[in-house]
Amino acid sequence: MASLQLDIVTPDQLVLSRAVDYVGAPGLEGEFGVLPGHIPFISALAIGALHYKAEGKTRYVFVSGGFAEVSDDKVTILAESAETAENIDFARAEKARKRAEERLAQKNEAVNNIRAESSLRRALVRLNLQGKN
């Protein structure tokens, strides 16, 4: 069976590079799935969980927004940060969630709400992936 090559790169490292059967990614305009033979496609990604199927198992990767490029059965994910579910620091995510919630609760003008919201979203997505892989 034909397979896809999935590469996830961040500025700091190559997070993942392997052959997979299916990739599901959180596009900015909704989730999309990629199977072998997909037409060339570029999409912006939202903060969310990317999943892929390989060897009959589904695995999850956290991505903090970025881009996905699909061409020639190759899926390249460019993200500012990405972590496979087993590499997520849940304690840190929990702390980030608390901090973001506190900031949002303050309703302070000085606090950058957009930034707090996106950091809350990042924390929640990370926490959601706990024990998923």
């Binding site: 596009g27 060339p40 496609f41 570029i42 999409s43 490029e69 061409s71």
Partner: peptide, 8 residues
Amino acid sequence: AKDYIYEP
């Protein structure tokens, strides 16, 4: 030569 679909 590739014609990408862009989203957005």
